[in-house]
Amino acid sequence: MELTEKKLIQDIVGGDKAAFKKLYDIHFNQGMRTAIAITRDREVAKDALQETFIRVYRNLSSYDENQPFEPWFYRILINECNRLLKKEAKMKQLVQVQKTEVIHSDYGKKEEYDDLYEAIQSLKDMYRHPLILKYLKGFTERDIAICLEINMNTIKTRLLKGREKLRKLLSEKRGGQDV
């Protein structure tokens, strides 16, 4: 961990609220983008990021500053995204019957993505999450392994298979052209 970040965390643990704001400013942009990519929903992403920072604030005293901060932070973020997505799915199930017509009329509002992003988002989470952490967040395979608490060889395999699946999906979409 960089010295400045270590100092920042020590200051927050010591009760310095301004230091917490600095930490927020540093990690907001990439945290927000990652949450949007993971949840596929900007409103859920906002809630997940908010909850993540609150959890970080409350748990910093138990965080081991000799460990890298970002994999720890993103582990909390991904857990929060998954938790809120599950909650959201349950809510949707509950109102599905009454809202059938509304959902139908909302169909046209679906966000439009380019082919590649759509293909990434159609992958299973086991491939999608490592790809997002690598290409959007810029994590190394080791960081991804620490963040997802999965061994590094599995991460390498999932990245490789994820890319293969993407090539296949894009090739099918583009009528068999090589990608």
């Binding site: 927000m32 983008r33 949007i36 990519a37 993505y113 380019d114 992003y117 990434i120 997002i132 959007l136």
Partner: peptide
């Protein structure tokens, strides 16, 4: 590069 680019373009807020 395209992977990174598409993720950045589609995660604007």
């Amino acid at each position: 590069d395209q992977m990174k680019q598409t993720m950045l373009e589609n995660t604007e807020y």
